[in-house]
């Protein structure tokens, strides 16, 4: 029972982990991108569309990643090159991305004459399979090593992002740009390039989270109304919960995943709470996390100082 619950929590947390890792990349380079929800939605559609037509998992992920990069490019051009307000641009991207994905989703539905469904062969490629040897470990094998391939991908990406950020030269330059672009610039770092690279990379990773939602959670059927459904926003909050560290986000996404699947594992005959409460739960927790972490005041685990502020070298 508990193993099943945690297993489901990991599954539910995976799209959040993608979204959070992506957003951390963007914020660490000084750009708060509130378009995660929109980028995820576009990734969800693009991933599904590619899977529907090609039947290839690799192509589906590539397509999702590409559309995420494209969506983030819109954001990057507006905020980095044209100095538009980051919050407004991000919100607009969410509205835009959601709209565009639903529009094309509707087209796909009407073209297929009902509900588009992924092929059996494709579904087999993303099914949950125990990893040989490791999957045979009692309990742990089931809990950690019997997932669909995207779960491992999300964890690998989060770990790579963390090592990149904290241990490499480019990661150092990126953190400096996020904290104080003026100082990084004076030290010879190409601020514009660093910002572009990480916003685009972040967008691509976020969109992978969207692809996860449409391919895995959707059960192989495209459903226009409830694909992403606020997961992008929870990811943005998770960034704060994880104190801008993707490795900590692995744990954070597990916690939030657990809350979102809690309703299926609470013995209904003992505790009687309306289902709507469980649906609401992740958002309540999000609010609480935001309140608590806004009271926490440590220099290390806090938002990069240059986040949200556009940089213009010749400003006087």
């Amino acid at each position: 029972m508990i193993i099943n619950f945690l297993f489901a929590a990991i599954k539910a947390g995976t799209p959040l982990l993608f979204g959070t890792s992506g957003e951390i990349m963007s914020e660490k380079s000084g750009n708060i991108n509130l378009g995660v929800e929109g980028m995820m939605f576009m990734g969800a559609f693009m991933g599904f569309y590619a899977a529907y037509h090609t039947g290839s998992l690799a192509l589906a992920l590539l397509a999702a990643f590409a559309i995420g990069v494209f969506a983030a490019l819109i954001y990057a051009v507006l905020t980095v090159s044209f100095m538009a307000n980051q919050n407004v641009t991000g919100l607009t991207l969410t509205i835009f991305g959601t709209g565009v994905a639903k529009f094309f989703g509707e087209m796909m539905i009407s073209k297929s004459g009902g509900s588009p469904k992924l092929s059996e062969r494709f579904l087999a490629s993303i099914s949950e399979k125990p990893i040989p040897v490791l999957g045979d470990i009692p309990l742990l094998g089931k809990l950690l090593f019997s997932h669909n391939p995207l779960v491992y991908l999300s964890v690998i990406i989060a770990i790579i992002c963390t090592i990149y950020m904290l241990k490499t030269r480019h990661g150092l330059n990126m953190r400096a740009v996020g904290e104080n672009p003026g100082a990084a610039d004076a030290a010879g770092v190409n601020v514009t390039l660093v910002k572009y690279v990480h916003i685009l990379l972040g967008g691509g990773i976020c969109a992978l989270g969207g692809a996860y939602l449409s391919l895995i959670n959707g059960g192989g059927i495209w459903n226009n109304s409830s694909v992403v459904n606020g997961q992008g926003w929870i990811s943005v909050a998770l960034v704060i919960f994880a104190s801008w560290n993707p490795a900590k986000a692995i744990f954070g996404s597990l916690v939030f995943g657990a809350f979102s699947v809690l309703q299926f594992y609470v013995p209904k005959n003992i505790i009687v709470i309306p289902n709507a409460f469980y649906v609401m739960l992740p958002f309540i927790i999000t609010t609480l996390v935001l309140i608590i972490s806004s009271m926490r005041k440590s220099r290390e685990g806090s938002q990069p100082a240059g986040c949200g502020v556009n940089y213009f070298r010749e400003e006087r």
Partner: peptide, 16 residues
């Protein structure tokens, strides 16, 4: 022109 959240070393190595 220093990044407050970083150590002296990392500030010196920055952009090298």
């Amino acid at each position: 022109k220093l990044v407050e959240a970083l150590t002296a070393t990392d500030n010196i190595l920055l952009g090298s």
